[in-house]
Simulated scan of single mutants.
Amino acid sequence: MIRLYTALLINKLEFHRRNPRFPGHLGVTADELESIAGNDINNYFEMTIEMFDYLDHVLDLQEAVLGSLNMARSNSMTSAGQCRLSPLIPCIQDASKLYDYCVKIMFKLHMALPPDLLAGHRDRFMKQFKSLKKFYENTSNLQYFKDLIAIPPLPDKPPNFLIMGDFRTYVTQEVVVPQEPEHDDEPITEGSLIDTTDDSAVENHSASNVSLSSVAHQEIINEREFLRAQCMK
């Protein structure tokens, strides 16, 4: 899972390096997507391949994560289970955007190029559609995700890119992450005109904080070295 997650992060960085106009969250409007591609069919063709590659990394990671859990038990609410599942939230968000763009670009490609030329694109899309639909269904059934993210279901059948009528009925499905309520009003605390602080207690507390900070720093170093060793395998 660490290797697959690292591969996904590297692919994401490479994608943004090649396509700097995509923000980190991948959210762009239809006009912005057209502008990024320069409304050039060759750019659309290459961009779809890059998005397919990106989505493959997401699907490989989710398969490994969900495959490591016993889906018949409620271990999505244990600390170990949540540690494995938490990276899937940004994966779901990215996958939703990538799927939406792939659908729209695929219709554009089929309006401009012969269907035979796009047979490989269609086969790859259909395979990813099945995996993504299963990914959404599995995560929607886990209690861990219930209050963290709203995952829209994919349609029962994938879009038919050979029928332009399917494009007119296609609707973008948005993944929603609930926002925590903002607390503008800070609690009012009563002040004191007399300093009753115990200096010795403060010194002991400061020393304790320094000790804890040193331990935390060493743990971070150890974790970094462990991840580096994993990536070198």
Results as ranks from 00 to 15, higher is better:
D184T: 11
V210E: 13
T189Y: 15
G191S: 08
L212A: 09
S208V: 00
A207M: 13
S208M: 04
V215A: 07
S206D: 11
I194M: 04
V202C: 01
S192G: 15
S211V: 04
D198P: 01
S208Q: 13
S214R: 14
V202Q: 02
I194R: 06
D198M: 10
S206V: 15
V215S: 11
I194S: 03
D199T: 08
S214N: 15
H183I: 06
S192F: 06
S206W: 13
S192W: 08
H183G: 00
S200L: 06
D184G: 14
D185M: 04
T189Q: 06
N204W: 07
S192N: 15
V202R: 02
D185L: 11
S214W: 10
E190P: 02
P187E: 09
D184K: 14
G191K: 00
D195K: 02
G191I: 03
D199L: 10
V215T: 11
G191T: 05
N209R: 08
D198E: 06
H183Q: 10
E203G: 09
S214V: 12
L193S: 05
S208A: 06
D184E: 12
D199P: 05
S214F: 08
V210C: 10
A201M: 14
D198T: 01
H205L: 15
T197L: 00
D198F: 00
D185Q: 06
I188G: 00
S211C: 05
L212W: 09
S214M: 12
P187Y: 11
H205W: 06
